[in-house]
Design a protein around this nucleic acid. Sequence first.
DNA 1: TTAAATATATCGGACATCCAATATTATATG
DNA 2: CATATAATATTGGATGTCCGATATATTTAA
Lengths: 105, 105
Amino acid sequence: MRGMLTFQILWELRTGPLNGQQIAEQIAKRRGTKPTPGTIYPALKDLEDRGSVKSEKEGRQRVYNLTEAGKAGYIEAARYFNQVFGDIAEDAKIIVLKTDDCSKC
Amino acid sequence: MRGMLTFQILWELRTGPLNGQQIAEQIAKRRGTKPTPGTIYPALKDLEDRGSVKSEKEGRQRVYNLTEAGKAGYIEAARYFNQVFGDIAEDAKIIVLKTDDCSKC
DNA sequence: TTAAATATATCGGACATCCAATATTATATG
DNA sequence: CATATAATATTGGATGTCCGATATATTTAA
């Protein structure tokens, strides 16, 4: 699906400003592997070019924040995600619950 | 995200055999636009080459079914999806509920 | 002061998605 | 029988993802 990385970045930024490496670490927590700089920085640059995030350089770190447009875009993407994946996500959750139960037997 | 289209195809096939156009229509129901032949048939061919689905030609239709490997692969992909997107999906659902409530005010 | 570590930034290449356009095959309709 | 429709199949191009490698900038450690 297109746009899933940027959607995840917007999701991470919804709670407050983060720098590039922090975003990568948050994504790593969920997906198990840390995205490399070659993944994170072009995506952040693209989001900034499109006006969804704004960054401020603080020393060697660049801190990223959602803009108003970014918040609106995140909500729109969340609605679309729910529309496309809502049922799929429910099934996935059930599968995990069933599989975990079985693995405890 | 990589692999999301094939994950959706496996999800549609989990309930029984479908042909290419039926799969496209099921995906269209959720995402609002119907994938074109250029999207569906290469993806189905790849899934068959990898042993996740098996097809049988019936007249001008080719009917696709999950294989045992496909079922296992679907469960694995569902677990990964839940791991990466479980929290995101919950938030997306909350956003939809809140936005729908507001649009009714 | 210098070296190491951290953070950022870029680029080329590979993979997956997505489509438009085109072609082929098989069935339905006139 | 000829035409239209439906389904499949393929290809090239564009977009997004993802990475490894490399380079630059800044802070920290030796």
